[in-house]
């Protein structure tokens, strides 16, 4: 059953959640860009009660099949709400339906935001200095997110697994377990995980990290940031993981010379982050996370490919995503030998 035929059930749920007698929902269209989730543009009208009014919104639900690393919608909602509370530019979270009893799958509703996210189109739309300004803004946004620490976090984030100085060891064990769950051995990734351990920096503090902070996961309009999206992988980590992920070559959408997300200079991005934290960015530490970024992307890509290959969710898009792990292997073999201990 598609969402279009379930709009009454969604409207009844929203009315209850908003303390209203009556709400109506118009389903506009399914939005692109959700490889793991389904996103629908909806218009909500709440007739009465404390939240009465019209809302341009997005309903985000679990996809038919999910990958192991991705948080379910209830946890993702808590993460967006925490980021919203810390002043990060995210879509305002509105209502959560965690049980799956309304439409058959858990979902939440958030404000719809203008702009576009698609990487290559976004890159083409940036003119002159707009890319550097956007990179700087994104650096500053990341600094706001990283103010959330295990000490300052709201109770709603208690579900996040605790990590500390053992972060890299935990990550290596997790990656190896993920590889064991895949049908084919991955010699390049096995080698890269060893190097990740051998070259690991000392992790002295962790913060709430987006963990998929890259071009494609934020929206912008006329070069201005409108929202940071997709908190489905977020968790406690070394804040430098987010900076390295953003700069990783695999997320520059072909514009490899623009090292910050394919949109701007590394300097502009670092400057934005430094303006928020008041501390200098440790470039070597960014480059450590940047060099190992393809390990994680390769595992996610292989898991995506397996969603197709297993027959769980036949899709050419997923099948081709699985093959992108080869690009990651190539990047790891090119970059990791250059990396030195001591980042």
């Amino acid at each position: 059953m598609s969402l279009a035929t379930q709009s009454q059930a969604v409207a009844d749920f929203i009315a209850r959640a908003a303390g209203a007698q009556r709400a109506t929902v118009s389903v506009l269209n399914r939005l692109g860009g959700g490889a793991i989730q389904e996103n629908w543009a909806i218009d909500v009208a709440i007739a009465d009660g404390p939240q009465a009014g019209n809302y341009e919104a997005v309903l985000r639900s679990d996809a038919v099949s999910v990958i192991a690393e991705s948080w379910p919608r209830a946890q993702e909602y808590a993460l967006i709400a925490a980021a919203h509370g810390a002043g990060v530019t995210v879509p305002q979270p509105l209502w959560l339906e965690p049980s799956g009893s309304v439409t058959g799958r858990p979902f939440y509703v958030m404000r719809r935001v203008r702009g576009m996210a698609q990487g290559r189109r976004l890159l083409r739309s940036l003119e002159g200095e707009a890319g550097d300004a956007l990179a700087q803004r994104l650096g500053a946004e990341l600094a706001k997110l990283h103010t959330i620490t295990p000490v300052t976090a709201p109770d709603s984030l208690a579900f996040l697994p605790k990590v500390g100085g053992d972060l890299i060891a935990v990550r290596a064990a997790h990656y190896r377990k993920s590889l064991d769950a895949l049908p084919e051995p991955q010699p390049v990734l096995e080698w890269a995980i060893n190097r990740m351990e051998d070259l690991a920096p000392k992790i002295d503090s962790v913060a709430l990290c987006h963990r998929d902070f890259r071009t494609g996961n934020y929206m912008a309009e006329s070069g201005e940031l409108t929202a940071i999206l997709d908190f489905e992988f977020s968790g406690w980590s070394d804040p430098y993981e987010d900076l390295g992920w953003f700069c990783a070559r695999c997320w520059r959408f072909g514009a490899v010379e623009r090292e910050a997300g394919g949109i701007g200079t590394r300097e502009a991005f670092y400057a934005g982050y430094e303006s928020g934290t008041g501390r200098s960015v440790d470039d070597a530490r960014v480059r450590y996370w940047e060099a190992i970024a393809p390990i994680r992307w390769a595992i996610i890509a292989l898991q995506q490919g397996e969603r197709h290959a297993s027959g769980q969710e036949p899709s050419l898009d997923l099948a081709l995503t699985g093959l992108r792990a080869i690009e990651c292997d190539y990047d790891l073999l090119a970059e990791l030998p250059k990396l030195k201990k001591g980042a």
Binding site: R176, L179, E184, P185, Q186, P187, E190, W191, I193, N194
Partner: peptide
């Protein structure tokens, strides 16, 4: 391939 991956690990 299995042997190689296992020996690398």
């Amino acid at each position: 391939r299995r042997r190689l991956a296992s020996d690398i690990r």
